[in-house]
């Protein structure tokens, strides 16, 4: 194993600074007592955090996003588990096409999906419906759940299932007692990734949300492109805090590198 030289370490420090800079600045500015985006050099204040919690629109959007992410991640899991079983366990015609279809939201830009959903819903007269918003998010996050479940299915020792069969377990018992427990890490990891991706999704949602279903990222985008005050920094700091906690949880449970980097 080679060691990194001093040049490499300086380079590395700069990259780390570059990656962290915007988030550090956001978190610091969030504590400013001033009315403008300034560093809290002299004193710290929580007034902008209080402002966030009193801002009805932001809170409504936050809960809206939470509900949306919970529902869409769960729906995508229920779609992905049987689909993944079909894809890994059976040879059938159109299997590759099906796999490509399920992973297509990764390749199709969210911008295009947003436009397409908007067109569909306007023809259906369903614009602004929360239920349909959930469906669009389920589509967008399905590839994440599917990929993780596919990965755990393919890496699973199928002889564990065969062993259970030889010991007298029926197909349903094998599924409940062996397959599902072994799939659980993949399912929960996929669910969490799906949750985060739904919670953070902006580009597609901005086309599909209506004033009553505005999600938090859309609300923040609108707010940031119109006025800039430290409340935006406070919201951002809160989101960074949530993301950090999620990251630590994910890392402890699954290893974030494995989850995000995948199997290559």
């Amino acid at each position: 194993m080679q060691r990194n030289g001093p040049v490499a370490l300086i380079f590395h420090s700069l990259v780390v600074a570059f990656m962290l800079a915007p988030m550090v600045v956001v978190c610091l500015v969030a504590f400013t007592p001033e009315n403008t985006l300034t560093m809290p050099w002299n004193s710290l204040s929580l007034r902008w955090f209080e402002a966030v919690f009193e801002h009805a629109d932001f809170m409504a959007s936050f809960w809206n996003s939470v509900r949306l992410a919970l529902l869409s991640a769960t729906i995508s899991t229920f779609l992905a588990v049987p689909a993944a079983l079909a894809i890994t366990r059976y040879e059938f015609r159109g299997r590759d096409a099906l796999n490509a279809l399920f992973l297509s939201p990764l390749i199709i830009p969210h911008l295009v999906l947003g436009v397409a959903f908007l067109r569909l819903f306007s023809l259906m007269g369903a614009t602004g419906s929360f239920a349909w918003l959930v469906a669009t998010h389920a589509i967008v996050v399905s590839p994440y759940t599917l990929r993780l479940i596919l990965a755990s299915l393919t890496s699973m020792d199928r002889n564990a299932e065969n062993a259970a069969r030889t010991l007298g377990a029926g197909e349903w018992t094998v599924f409940c007692r062996i397959t599902m427990p072994l799939l659980l890490p993949g399912i929960s990891g996929g669910w969490l990734l799906a949750f985060i991706n739904s919670f953070d999704e902006l580009t597609m949602s901005i086309f599909v949300t209506s004033p009553s279903t505005v999600t938090l990222p859309v609300r923040m985008y609108m707010y940031a492109s119109e006025s800039i005050d430290p409340m935006m920094a406070a919201v951002s700091a809160l989101m960074i805090a949530v993301a950090t906690v999620t990251m630590i949880v994910l890392d402890r449970m699954f290893g974030l590198d494995r989850l995000l980097v995948g199997k290559g």
């Binding site: 020792d157 564990a160 065969n162 062993a163 259970a164 030889t166 010991l167 377990a169 007692r177 072994l182």
Partner: peptide
């Protein structure tokens, strides 16, 4: 089908249930 044959099978990879203890593995059948 295998469950009704009631034969004992030892697999090359052992195919132990990784989420069960030794006693739970043995007790499964």
């Amino acid at each position: 089908p295998p469950p009704q044959r009631e034969l004992g099978v030892v697999f090359q990879s052992y195919a132990l249930f990784p989420h069960m203890t030794v006693a739970e593995n043995v007790s499964f059948g």
